[in-house]
């Protein structure tokens, strides 16, 4: 019996030791990736910053790629200055086209000295949404260049959503019950109308629109922009833009109501 107790004690000591070893290494919990908050009004620079988060997080790109590493013998191409390299990689392909191509069909053009093996980023398991991939492209453009991509840019690829794998929702999706400011930014109103300063951009400033127009007038101005034109601004621009964005198809009555209320609240100051 004595030897059994000794053995039991020994077992406990060894197991405790291995638990201790397991607890001395860096402790990190990995959570399932969360979708980034992307909105259509983001400038390319803002998109690039969001893209950097995706690259480091959900996209898991940095598991393989380095950015600006000078080590020799890398296993995967370094992404430092990728914007410069991308334009010269494949004849007849612009940097943007090449980057998009490399993300959607990564194994077609392999950089010399490296192995094929990168997964298509829009497919599971990584499964970035098209919008997130645009943010990634914007980030890549910022490495050695200037980002030019917005969510409205056509990169030449559209992912069909798979039926069984629940595609992670891409942040602020269109038509998903937005509030007033949400509608205002999602449909890019803020690229032409300033909302917090009286200086006009492409269109008139909406800084004090609530004090100038009634809700009814605002509603009309949104639904039929050319009906009443503010002086000094050309007609047709807003209607064309909103049609191109599919605003009239997508916006829900509640959203429209929220937008009008939001704009009516803009009293200046």
């Amino acid at each position: 019996m004595k030897s059994s107790l000794k053995i039991f004690g020994f077992v406990i000591v060894v197991l405790a030791f291995y638990s201790y070893v397991g607890n001395t290494v860096p402790q990190k919990i990995t959570y399932p990736p969360e979708s980034a908050d992307l909105s259509a009004d983001m400038t390319p620079d803002e998109l690039a910053i969001a893209g950097a988060d995706i690259v480091a997080g959900k996209g898991t790109c940095l598991g393989c790629h380095t950015v600006g590493s000078r080590d020799s013998g890398l296993r995967f191409p370094d992404l430092g200055g990728i914007a410069t390299k991308a334009s010269t990689r494949i004849a007849g392909m612009s940097a943007l086209e090449y980057l998009a191509h490399s993300l959607y069909e990564p194994n077609e053009f392999i950089v010399d000295g490296f192995l094929a093996g990168m997964p298509a980023i829009n497919r599971p398991p990584i499964g970035l949404t098209d919008d997130e991939i645009k943010a990634v492209i914007a980030y890549l453009q910022s490495l050695g260049g200037t980002p030019s991509v917005t969510l409205a840019t056509d990169v030449g690829y559209v992912t069909e959503v798979s039926a069984i794998a629940p595609a992670p929702s891409g942040g602020a999706t269109l038509g998903a019950g937005l509030d007033g400011p949400g509608v205002f930014t999602t449909y890019l109103c803020n690229t032409c109308h300033s909302i917090d300063s009286p200086d006009p951009l492409v269109g008139p400033s909406l800084f004090d629109v609530g004090s100038r127009l009634s809700k009814a007038e605002i509603y009309e101005a949104v639904m039929e922009p050319d009906a009443t034109l503010a002086e000094g601004f050309p007609g047709g621009v807003m209607l064309t833009t909103l049609n191109a964005l599919g605003f009239y198809q997508k916006v829900s009555p509640e959203e429209l109501r929220a937008l009008v209320n939001y704009l009516a609240d803009q009293q200046g100051n």
Partner: peptide
């Protein structure tokens, strides 16, 4: 439980 726990936690479970 979709997250991946720390190695220390895993070590304790294994022990």
């Amino acid at each position: 439980d979709a997250f991946t726990p720390t190695l220390g936690f895993a070590s304790n479970v294994i022990s």
